[in-house]
Amino acid sequence: MIDFIQNTLDGITIGAGYALLAIGFTLIFGVLRRLNLAYGPSIMIGVFLGTFIYLHFDAGWLPVAIATVIGAILAGIYVERMCFWAIKEGAALASMVSTFAIWMQLEELVTVIFPERTYKFPTLGEMDYLEFAGLEMRAEHLIMLGIAVLMVGLLHVLLYRTRFGLSVRAVSENPAAARFMGINTGRVIFRAFILASAIGGVAGFLLVATDPTVTPKFGLQATFKGLIAMMLGGMGSIPGAIAGGVLLGIVERHMQAEFGAIMRDMAAYALLFLFLIFRPGGIMAQGVAAREAAALRRV
């Protein structure tokens, strides 16, 4: 029983990182309605920039975190310009394949500059375990959870209390109507991309800092963890992204503990597959469906 609770707790912590990735995915998907496969790889660029700062300047975790976010943003801007801004409307497939091409490019760039298989990454410091009623929690996990919650709170304020947030929501819901209101959709997309990349950078830092090794495969993992968590929660929904991320974290953690790494990954994809077949709208589907039904009744 203690094990079960312990694994659930650990799962929630990892899930918080996944949730941030899924939020970034959902933000980009919301304003663009296109899939950005290069999301994870652009975060990976940030992570490697962080590693670079760490290795060459022996920097502490805060400068490394900042470098990670900056690197993710720069790579994100590159992806946005190449794969979305430059490709004309209506060519969503070309955009998606283009993000894949850029992914390959970024991954190779990293392996050329960092030829070793793995690199060290700073942890959030040497910290004690916190114990409570037989459960233990690594202090950095707690910090990770705290930062994730803080990020979600900030994001909520940004989306629901600011003019920029209003424009992001407007473009996500209906780009044509947003243009009619005088909103410059291209600029909103660009800024939403920067925001998503920054969130991704934080998520990348947190995920790597708790498991302090870096590999070029991080890009692939980040893209697919974020994608799975987004789909589990329901595309375009931020509460969904959080729920999906946490669910994914918990399921992975339990499967890992019981059956090992292969079953962990298997379970993640099986869960995704089952959700798509039986509940394609994700965890949050009920809300959307209920609203649509209500709208139909009132017309």
Partner: peptide, 18 residues
């Protein structure tokens, strides 16, 4: 460096030939 070159080429190609 092949994927760096090829990835970039593909991305540019798709801009002009979606």
């Amino acid at each position: 460096y092949r994927m760096i070159a090829f990835g970039g080429l593909v991305a540019v190609l798709l801009i002009f030939m979606p």
